Amino acid sequence: MNPADPHLAKTRLLDFDAPSIVKLIEERGWADLPRYTRIGAIYDFVRNEIVFGYNRADDIPASEVLADGYGQCNTKGTLLMALLRGVGICNRLHGFTIHKALQRGVVPELVYPLAPSEILHSWVEVETDEGWVNLEGFILDTSFLQTLQQEFSYTDSLCGYGVGTECLSAPPVAWTGHDTYIQDNGIVHDFGTFEAPDEFYSEHCQSFGFVRDLLYRHVVRHWMNARVRAIRRGTLPRASRLGRPNHSHEETNSAA
């Protein structure tokens, strides 16, 4: 392990030296596992033991995500990166925006029109023996995803409820050493790769506006989390309209 490698560096957000993260890595014995298994064990932890949900902001440290016990694409990605770096696995962030249609059904219909048309999104790229691998499939925990698979068993195409996929019945979300995806077909803009999330959020931030940001932090995200918990229990809040996002912006081919 090269401590000077920027893809292994500790940052404000990737605080893998925080006591809670150090303790978790030690208790799970991740550092002692073979490289492939080490990546998979941490990936599975973030995918299922840190359940899908909405934190107070995107740019929070990994230790805060761990303490919350839930997260979405950006915050779970920060935790995944920190844990992987804590055991010597190089990684980086790939930043995007996705169409807000992917959040329909989780965002209450009353406030859906107020949501920005594009939502800040990211996935983690991890360095393996075969090269860089894209990891996005960790966003939704299994219980949440299974409810959607049961409810929409008649189709493999879903854009909504935190999903953007053409293979809902068997999405590539399990760690196999290859790319994993669950929201990739809703991507609008591709911002490229960043050595750390700190760099990404210093250049890009979600443009809610002051009032909408306050509403999101203190009201809307709690409402969304209640809906997510209901879905995880098997109760699906209805969305008025689901479908493929209508991309009016520059497309990206990076998530093919």
Results as ranks from 00 to 15, higher is better:
residue 95 G to K: 11
residue 65 V to W: 02
residue 88 G to H: 00
residue 122 S to P: 01
residue 60 I to A: 04
residue 68 D to H: 04
residue 201 Y to H: 05
residue 178 H to G: 15
residue 33 L to N: 08
residue 25 I to S: 15
residue 245 P to S: 01
residue 77 G to S: 04
residue 197 P to C: 03
residue 248 S to E: 06
residue 246 N to C: 03
residue 67 A to P: 03
residue 155 T to S: 12
residue 186 G to Q: 07
residue 99 H to S: 13
residue 177 G to F: 11
residue 161 Y to N: 10
residue 126 V to C: 12
residue 213 D to Q: 15
residue 214 L to G: 07
residue 29 G to I: 03
residue 81 M to S: 08
residue 45 F to G: 08
residue 137 G to N: 07
residue 122 S to R: 04
residue 175 W to K: 02
residue 179 D to L: 10
residue 200 F to P: 15
residue 45 F to L: 14
residue 120 L to Y: 08
residue 211 V to N: 13
residue 47 R to G: 06
residue 11 T to M: 13
residue 173 V to E: 04
residue 252 T to P: 08
residue 113 P to T: 09
residue 217 R to E: 12
residue 228 V to A: 05
residue 11 T to I: 12
residue 171 P to C: 07
residue 39 I to C: 05
residue 125 E to G: 06
residue 60 I to K: 05
residue 97 T to N: 04
residue 224 M to N: 05
residue 240 S to L: 15
residue 118 E to K: 04
residue 99 H to A: 14
residue 141 D to G: 04
residue 112 Y to G: 00
residue 133 V to M: 01
residue 236 L to E: 03
residue 102 L to W: 05
residue 249 H to I: 10
residue 5 D to A: 01
residue 189 H to Q: 15
residue 45 F to C: 11
residue 114 L to P: 10
residue 79 L to H: 09
residue 65 V to H: 07
residue 29 G to T: 13
residue 156 D to L: 06
residue 178 H to Q: 15
residue 148 L to A: 01
residue 45 F to R: 07
residue 209 G to I: 13
residue 241 R to Q: 15
residue 215 L to K: 05
residue 93 L to T: 01
residue 167 C to R: 14
residue 56 R to T: 09
residue 69 G to K: 15
residue 149 Q to V: 13
residue 150 Q to T: 14
residue 96 F to N: 10
residue 3 P to K: 13
residue 146 Q to E: 05
residue 215 L to R: 07
residue 73 C to P: 07
residue 217 R to A: 02
residue 76 K to G: 04
residue 8 L to T: 02
residue 102 L to A: 02
residue 9 A to W: 00
residue 51 V to N: 04
residue 112 Y to F: 06
residue 244 R to K: 10
residue 39 I to A: 11
residue 200 F to R: 04
residue 183 Q to I: 01
residue 202 S to V: 09
residue 140 L to D: 05
residue 120 L to I: 11
residue 12 R to A: 08
residue 73 C to Q: 01
residue 25 I to H: 09
residue 94 H to P: 02
residue 163 V to L: 09
residue 118 E to L: 08
residue 164 G to M: 07
residue 57 A to E: 12
residue 248 S to C: 06
residue 217 R to N: 13
residue 215 L to P: 02
residue 75 T to P: 09
residue 153 S to I: 05
residue 113 P to D: 06
residue 19 P to F: 00
residue 27 E to T: 15
residue 41 A to G: 03
residue 88 G to L: 10
residue 13 L to K: 12
residue 169 S to H: 13
residue 9 A to R: 07
residue 80 L to Q: 03
residue 70 Y to H: 06
residue 184 D to E: 15
residue 218 H to Q: 12
residue 12 R to F: 04
residue 85 R to V: 03
residue 199 E to F: 09
residue 145 L to T: 04
residue 25 I to V: 11
residue 221 R to E: 14
residue 225 N to S: 09
residue 152 F to M: 02
residue 231 I to G: 00
residue 208 F to C: 05
residue 103 Q to T: 11
residue 3 P to V: 00
